[in-house]
Amino acid sequence: MKNLVEGALLVTILLSLFLYNMRAALIVAVIIPLSLLFAFVFMDLRGIPANLLSLGAIDFGIIVDGAVIMTENIMRHLSARRVRGQQAIREVQHAALEVARPLTFGVLIIMTVYVPILTFQRIEGKLFRPMAVTIALAVIGALALTLTLIPVLATFLFRRPPGERESPLLRWLRRPYAWLLAGCVRRPLLPVAGAAALLVLSCFAFMVLGKEFLPELDKGDLWLRVKFPVWGPRS
């Protein structure tokens, strides 16, 4: 639980740095505990305990991904139109509908990654299936909250249109990214060749790396077993 709280706080700080709007960061951060609550409710209904196997692979980045896109799009519409009242509500609805379809498709793509894990049987199924179920439930809950709760919170917290301010961190990252993007567009064969080289390198690394079901854990414990003869004294 401590790691979950620390992770949520870290994500909130990073959101405030990138979105450069505390209200937007709070709207996105609300998705984290509510999506986890959604997952915990269905875990309890399915009899899945909360332990290292079921909660260890939760990724807050995947959970808030859609919420960041939704909130940023709403902020962009409101800051560009500078509307208030009922017009602001309609603008929020328009911004939410604009990204609802790609967000849903993105979640479905993420879900397909965990489908093979759900088919595991025997010991590997007991080890990895709770992880896949927990992540899938959290992502589904995050999507439902992103499509419903975030537009509602935006209408309350953005009664005044947000200012169109760019984060200094993004401004600092924009220049090297623009230079890199321009170079890739001018020479498209370079990124394609680089991606192909990485693919070949990853396949080679996969073949030479050792493979085992579970890694050996060296906890520094010392096990001592003493055997006495059956006929000898034991004093």
Score class of each variant (00 low, 15 high):
residue 122 R to E: 13
residue 198 L to V: 12
residue 156 F to P: 09
residue 127 L to S: 05
residue 142 A to F: 01
residue 180 L to P: 09
residue 190 L to H: 10
residue 122 R to F: 13
residue 160 R to P: 13
residue 184 C to G: 11
residue 163 G to Y: 12
residue 193 A to Q: 07
residue 136 A to T: 11
residue 118 L to S: 01
residue 165 R to T: 14
residue 113 V to D: 03
residue 153 L to K: 01
residue 128 F to Q: 07
residue 182 A to V: 01
residue 158 F to W: 05
residue 139 V to C: 07
residue 202 S to N: 08
residue 211 K to D: 02
residue 174 R to G: 06
residue 153 L to F: 04
residue 115 V to D: 07
residue 218 D to K: 09
residue 131 M to I: 03
residue 209 L to S: 15
residue 116 P to A: 00
residue 169 L to I: 07
residue 134 T to P: 03
residue 143 L to F: 05
residue 157 L to M: 05
residue 126 K to W: 11
residue 220 G to K: 06
residue 214 L to W: 02
residue 147 L to D: 05
residue 124 E to N: 15
residue 135 I to D: 00
residue 143 L to K: 06
residue 208 V to D: 10
residue 173 L to P: 03
residue 132 A to Q: 04
residue 171 R to P: 01
residue 159 R to S: 08
residue 203 C to Y: 14
residue 122 R to T: 09
residue 179 W to Y: 13
residue 166 E to W: 15
residue 115 V to H: 02
residue 204 F to T: 07
residue 207 M to E: 13
residue 194 G to K: 06
residue 185 V to M: 07
residue 168 P to C: 04
residue 114 Y to S: 08
residue 205 A to C: 11
residue 214 L to P: 06
residue 206 F to K: 11
residue 193 A to T: 08
residue 129 R to E: 11
residue 145 L to G: 00
residue 194 G to R: 09
residue 182 A to H: 07
residue 161 P to D: 03
residue 148 T to A: 03
residue 186 R to C: 12
residue 192 V to T: 06
residue 138 A to H: 02
residue 130 P to C: 01
residue 113 V to H: 10
residue 151 P to I: 02
residue 186 R to V: 09
residue 177 Y to F: 11
residue 157 L to F: 06
residue 189 L to E: 11
residue 195 A to L: 15
residue 203 C to Q: 15
residue 148 T to W: 02
residue 132 A to C: 04
residue 154 A to Y: 01
residue 131 M to Q: 03
residue 161 P to Y: 01
residue 187 R to Q: 11
residue 218 D to W: 10
residue 189 L to M: 15
residue 117 I to C: 07
residue 189 L to K: 14
residue 114 Y to L: 09
residue 118 L to K: 00
residue 202 S to E: 07
residue 220 G to M: 00
residue 203 C to T: 14
residue 130 P to V: 00
residue 201 L to F: 14
residue 137 L to R: 04
residue 152 V to H: 11
residue 134 T to D: 02
residue 156 F to T: 07
residue 124 E to D: 14
residue 114 Y to V: 09
residue 145 L to A: 01
residue 208 V to R: 11
residue 203 C to F: 15
residue 136 A to M: 08
residue 133 V to C: 05
residue 123 I to P: 13
residue 199 L to W: 12
residue 156 F to W: 09
residue 165 R to M: 14
residue 201 L to R: 12
residue 158 F to E: 06
residue 154 A to S: 02
residue 183 G to V: 03
residue 156 F to G: 07
residue 144 A to S: 08
residue 125 G to W: 05
residue 156 F to C: 06
residue 180 L to C: 10
residue 185 V to K: 12
residue 210 G to S: 04
residue 166 E to S: 14
residue 135 I to S: 04
residue 120 F to E: 05
residue 194 G to C: 10
residue 111 M to Q: 08
residue 125 G to Y: 02
residue 190 L to T: 14
residue 117 I to Y: 10
residue 142 A to M: 02
residue 196 A to V: 07
residue 135 I to F: 03
residue 127 L to Y: 04
residue 163 G to W: 12
residue 174 R to H: 09
residue 209 L to N: 15
residue 190 L to W: 11
residue 156 F to S: 11
residue 191 P to M: 00
residue 144 A to E: 06
residue 139 V to T: 03
residue 202 S to Q: 13
residue 165 R to G: 13
residue 182 A to I: 00
residue 128 F to E: 02
residue 145 L to I: 06
residue 194 G to W: 08
